[in-house]
Design a protein around this nucleic acid. Structure first.
Length: 837
RNA sequence: GCCCACAUGGUGGAAUUGGCAGACACGCAAGACUUAGGAUCUUGUGUCGAGAGGCGUGGGGGUUCAAGUCCCUCUGUGGGCACCA
């Protein structure tokens, strides 16, 4: 018999059954809302033309396993799916092929949906959302207007990547090593007024509130580092001989090193440079302008690389005064200082900062050491070289062990104390303040593209920026025959005068619409709320539903979304909390991450490498249950794993083995004792209870690969028995259900169900009996002076002295102990004994 | 460059979180069975050694009775770096 064909029949049958009966539609009756809830969430996909990647179902199946188990534990489970469908690839596809992005999206969604259904994922499809649906993005626009109303959306000059040849703004992804991906022309930065969201207003809360949620530790760390809070001081340096008493504001985390600041560096984009070029103060204008031009071609990443040779140009004729030493110090510009971090200017302390040190060495600038290593403790015994604070070779950056020198009132203080003393001094002198600084920057929310949510703002010559009233939402994208680019870097919307020309909602005079659209991140920053009530046209979701379902109990997604999507959506949720429309400060109670699935060559799957595995082919050849279970078995869930088609065959064999067990199933009372003795049954029951324990624990902790291996071990045992007790088989069916739901449903119907209509999906999850999980006789490992010398089998409750006697009497081990004096015995109960001789 | 991970047999991986390294699979080898169709079933399989036994978790160092697990350091690989999603 061909089992794969049989599996496919079974899968078709059950998928149709689930569809027809809407088995996984959540219970929204009054009864249902009395039940305890579980909201499981996975990141909704971008429906690309390539179809589902084998990486997608790793997360989806994992959460499906968890949700299926939760249903069996009597939770009201919401497990929804939708489409994050705005974005660049679809737009570029539309430009290339002339197919409207809405049409392409529709086709891609249909394909993705077919593929997800083929995997037997238990989504509640009645909750499906699509970010490009006007009934969805109406509420994205609504949230934007609320942000605008609260002053959190504003316009500012921000650089875009500009290809002078294609005459088009480029996404970072389209800039490869500084040149345009399409034509290899050097990309330049061009400033443009863009919409920004003030996420920095939430920086502290985005850090603090991580204390209240259950995220993987490394996710928290990544978020905290991304936000990059640091404590220091802002200090003003006077510019010598400036007309307006100009001051240069810098941020430093090391005010203690103020006396060591021997020059300053400005970012090439710093506004003061323009001012001094105009006023004629800068003498080497052409060199400065050249340098600015060069810097505009580099990305921030290239600019801050430590290995690169430091470059820079002095602003000749302009000097600052060090407020502590009162010295006159030169001002340079260099691209290693970024306008986007701190104030765009630094005080350089070459003795104690490696980048400043490299810069000073390159340009022969004065270096003054202001910290030395503390003298070794008295009687330390000549630890030569241990506390080397020489700055011959590199900067001395140790804060912990440093003592101040050359710093007048700071001299003799530890560097740590000096930080505090120097900050106080700066405040006393009124030349600066203590300051908390963040790496986090405000969110550039404008895209000069067609395929995104229109920003519902009108620019009125009289009233300024005027938001559309809520009643005019959604502001829909105008239909176009063909998506194109425009030559001025604006969105093609700017060329549709019938759309752009409008009237001001406030004064009814002529006005123009905003032609930038929102980034893809907008729709994905709140989709988890729309799932709760996707057809509501009065609100993005009813408050009762939000109250019942939020927060999300478990959100699994890729590690690659740790900083952007996760932070953006937490920010939006916090904002919605602040305006009183969601009840919880944090959207996600628990966040976990899965590893990527790599190609068989252990490289990332990509078309160009030709190592892409197509889920359709695998399902077609082995069936959905095999595919699902393999995805769970492929490797540690949180780590990257390479695809291995041989391994798929292993899982397929396992499921065939499971299917063949059916023939041996017999009612417990009818088992022939010559086939399976009572002792054998007891032993199998032990394995069964152990398997229940392991599978339960391992699903809860996402150790799916070892959960599957527990099932394999159990099945191997059952396979050896001549007949199989129905009770043992029933447990197998229940445990298998989350992983291979089609086969399990069939097994249940065929052998276990008491009526024809009794389904498996909401049966009670099995519990283990502790008395079957414990062993009476245990094996203790024996070490002699740390070396493994054998094992002994003893009663579980044996004490240390009795155990030592057993060890001494053991044939293999005794020779190592005989005649030796025992110095010490370490016994770890139930595990190991180490005898030190 | 910066931030975060990871590195274990021929392969994917396991190891109760400091306590018998290699569970479970794949592959391979030998055998059984069969009118052989990606079969199935036994048995074996880290490595050196005839054996006793030694060695072994990317390299080097350290802590500990005990280290794959903790610390330091080096190397390599992966994710993110704000307009891919």
């Amino acid at each position: 018999m061909d089992y794969v064909s049989r599996f496919k029949e079974i899968e078709k049958k059950w998928q149709e059954h689930w569809d027809k009966n809407q088995t996984f539609k959540i219970d929204e009756s009054a009864e249902g809302f009395k039940k305890k809830k579980f909201y499981g969430l996975v990141e909704f996909p971008y429906p690309s033309g390539a179809g589902l990647h084998v990486g997608h179902p790793r997360s989806y199946t994992a959460m499906d396993v968890i949700c299926r188990k939760k249903r069996m534990e009597n939770y009201n489970v919401l497990y929804p799916m939708g489409w994050d469908a705005f974005g660049l690839p679809t737009e570029n596809f539309a430009i290339k092929t002339g197919i409207h992005p809405a049409k392409a999206t529709e086709m891609n969604v249909a394909n993705f949906k077919r593929q997800l259904k083929m995997l037997g994922l238990s989504f509640d499809w009645s909750k499906e959302v699509n970010t490009t649906d006007p009934n969805y993005y109406k509420w994205t626009q609504w949230i934007f207007l609320k942000l605008f109303e609260k002053g959190l959306a504003y316009k500012a000059e921000m650089p875009i990547n500009w290809c002078p040849s294609c005459k088009v703004g480029l996404a970072n992804e389209e800039v490869v090593q500084g040149v345009c991906d399409r034509c290899d022309t050097q990309v330049v930065r061009k400033n443009k007024k863009q919409w920004m969201l003030r996420i920095t207003a939430y920086a502290d809360r985005l850090i603090e509130d991580l204390n209240d949620v259950d995220y993987l530790e490394r996710i928290k760390i990544q978020q905290i580092n991304w936000i990059g809070r640091s404590y220091g001081a802002e200090i003003r340096f006077k510019i010598k001989n400036s007309k307006d008493d100009d001051q240069l504001l810098i941020f430093t985390t090391r005010p203690d090193t103020l006396f060591g600041a021997t020059y300053m560096v400005l970012s090439p984009e710093h506004p003061l440079i323009e001012k001094y070029i105009k006023s004629g103060m800068i003498k080497n204008v052409s060199a400065v302008k050249n340098y600015q031009e060069e810097a505009s071609k580099k990305s921030d990443m290239e600019r801050t690389e430590l290995v690169q040779k430091k470059s820079g140009v002095p602003l000749e004729g302009v000097f600052a005064i060090n407020p502590a030493s009162k010295e006159e110090i030169p001002i340079w510009i260099s691209d290693y200082v970024l306008m986007s971090y701190g104030t765009g200017a630094i005080m350089a302390v070459p003795a104690h900062d490696q980048r400043d040190y490299d810069f000073a060495k390159t340009f022969n600038l004065f270096i003054r050491q202001v910290i030395v290593a503390a003298a070794p403790a008295a009687g330390g015994g000549g630890g030569a070289g241990v506390n080397d604070s020489s700055i011959e070779e590199h900067a001395y950056t140790d804060i912990e062990g440093g003592v101040m020198i050359n710093s007048e009132f700071l001299n003799g203080l530890s560097a740590k104390d000096a930080i505090k003393r120097a900050t106080d001094w700066v405040i006393e002198q009124k030349i600066g303040e203590a300051k908390v600084n963040f790496k986090l920057r405000d969110w550039v929310f404008s895209r000069q593209r067609y395929w995104g949510e229109p920003i519902p703002i009108v620019e009125c010559p009289h009233c300024g920026q005027v938001p559309l009233p809520e009643s005019m939402l959604p502001l829909t994208l105008p239909d176009v025959d063909k998506v194109t680019t425009s030559e001025d870097g604006e969105s093609m919307l700017s060329k549709l005068s019938s759309w752009v020309e409008t009237t001001c909602p406030k004064c009814a005079g002529p006005a123009k619409r905003e032609t930038d659209t929102m980034p893809q991140w907008a729709g994905s920053s709140w989709y988890f709320l729309r799932y709760l009530d996707p057809h509501n046209d009065k609100a993005f979701a009813s408050s009762e539903k939000i109250k019942y379902w939020m927060p999300i109990d478990w959100y699994n997604g890729g590690m690659e979304h740790t900083t952007l999507h996760l932070l953006y959506s937490r920010f939006w949720n916090k904002f919605l909390f602040d305006i009183g429309v969601v009840p919880c400060k944090e959207p996600y109670q628990k966040r976990t991450s899965h590893g990527m699935i790599l190609g068989e060559d252990k490289e990332k799957m990509s078309k160009s490498r030709g190592n892409v595995i197509n889920p359709d082919e695998i399902v077609n050849e082995y069936g959905a249950d095999t595919f699902r279970m393999y995805e769970m078995f492929v490797g540690a869930f949180d780590q990257a794993s390479a695809w291995n088609t041989q391994g798929v065959i292993g899982i397929n064999r396992f499921l065939v083995k499971v299917a063949t067990l059916i023939e041996k199933v017999v009612d417990d009372s009818k088992v022939d004792s010559s086939c399976v003795s009572n002792e054998e049954f007891e032993a199998l029951k032990k394995v069964m209870h152990k398997t229940i324990k392991e599978v339960t624990e391992r699903i809860n902790s996402m150790k799916f690969n070892t959960a599957v291996s527990s099932l394999m071990t159990y099945v191997n045992h059952l396979g050896k028995a001549g007949q199989i007790h129905l009770s043992l088989f029933k447990t197998l069916t229940l445990l298998l259900h989350p992983f291979a739901p089609h086969l399990a449903a069939e097994m249940w119907q065929e052998k276990v169900a008491s009526t024809a209509n009794e389904g498996l999906d909401f049966q009670k999850w099995p519990e283990f009996d502790p008395k079957y999980v414990q062993d009476d006789i245990i094996t203790i490992a024996v070490q002699i002076t740390g070396k493994m010398r054998g094992t002994v089998d003893v009663a579980a409750d044996i004490d240390e002295d009795a155990l030592l006697e057993v060890v001494k009497g053991d044939e293999k081990i005794s020779k190592y102990v005989e005649g030796k004096k025992i110095k010490k015995v370490i016994y770890v109960k139930g595990k190991i004994i180490n005898v030190i001789i």
